[in-house]
Design a binder for these strands. Structure first.
Lengths: 202, 202
DNA sequence: GTGATATAAATACGCTTGTACTAATACAGT
DNA sequence: ACTGTATTAGTACAAGCGTATTTATATCAC
């Protein structure tokens, strides 16, 4: 029997090389050769784990979605406001490592627009995110934390929009929008939704 | 004297071909040859107006920024809430034509992340947008429409985030987020900022 | 008409790309 | 130690790329 290699581990290793190439040179430079060189393997070896470039990029994108999902699932149940805050913290690019992930995600997202093979990761992630947010906000309504006059589904869409918009700002406008500003905007938004926490009940 | 051609008009014509190629095939397919074929001109002709591919893409992006700026400047002075609404309408991809512009913009934005030549259009647009929003919100504070407890600059950042986030949702999640939902979220946000307009003053 | 010249088209060069194929390597079971 | 095979490396090929250069075209001043 030949050498035994952990297939999934190798695929992850190669996907991480994809991230590095995209982060520094852009998606359009993420050629099979460039990724192979970045990973330290030959193009022939890479092809054993990913028969085509598309499958390589698609896996790299799905792995990013998995990481985001894992961060979200690690949020333990607390009061609704804290959960909403933690979700924003899990999605916003507050650390350098996460910032790079978001940059790569956005680059792949733009490509997914014209590459059906990349669209699934985006759809699944989005779907999961919105249903989680809706769930929390419906629960908040049931607990009287969110006003009856508000539509929880619409508020979920709007809150996700704030997170996405602040994410864009952090990535493309970093010198103006710091992590502190991003979180301040999130907290201000939660104040509007759920009321200022430290004040007496109205 | 030779044939006289309107240089700027031809450059715009070629830039529009760039938009079409990016919209249907993606930035990575926006080669000089592909754009020339889409425009109906030869690559040699194209090169008379854009010596390099980078200059072609940069001009295509700047032209998009110009169109957005023109839409914003066409908003005539009205009450602050209406102005804020109109700004959102000018930026959100509510029509098919505008939707394509936003798709192309996002594709070029992703590339601008690793291509300094494309970054200026993004910066200028962003800067102008934020200062307009801040101006309106400071005015709203002066008129007592925005609560003194709110920071107009932070609210400008947050409102732009909502617009950007809804824009992303409209483009990448169109079957779930319609134009109506996007505008409903905007109106809800303006309600939070400025109060519900149809009610009696508190 | 004629000629000067901006524009258009065509061709060519060197490079990179995605993918395919072939030969060498190295390790698990006997 | 031997053998078979998963893995790796290396090479090859056709296609597409950005760009340069060279030739042909068409129009305006005279």
């Amino acid at each position: 029997m030949p050498k035994a290699v952990d297939h999934e581990a190798r695929r992850r290793e190669l996907a991480e090389a994809v991230w590095r190439v995209i982060s520094t040179d852009g998606v359009h430079r993420a050629s099979v050769r460039a990724v192979a060189a970045e990973s330290g393997w030959s193009t022939g070896s890479l092809r054993h784990y990913f028969p085509t470039q598309d499958s390589l990029l698609a896996f790299a994108m799905e792995l990013l979605a998995d990481k985001a999902r894992a961060r979200l699932q690690a949020i333990d149940d607390q009061d609704n406001r804290t959960v909403l805050r933690r979700i924003a913290e899990a999605l916003l690019p507050l650390t350098t490592e996460h910032r790079i992930e978001v940059e790569v995600w956005l680059a792949l997202l733009a490509r997914a627009q014209v590459d059906p093979g990349l669209q699934r990761a985006e759809r699944d992630n989005r779907e999961a995110l919105l249903s989680v947010l809706s769930g929390v906000l419906w629960r908040a309504t049931a607990h009287g934390e969110l006003s009856e006059s508000r539509n929880p589904d619409l508020e979920a869409v709007r809150y996700l929009a704030v997170i996405d918009g602040m994410t864009l700002a952090c990535v493309f406008y970093a010198e103006r929008i710091s992590a502190e500003v991003a979180l301040a905007a999130i907290d201000r938004h939660l104040d509007d939704l759920l009321g200022v926490p430290s004040t007496l009940p109205a």
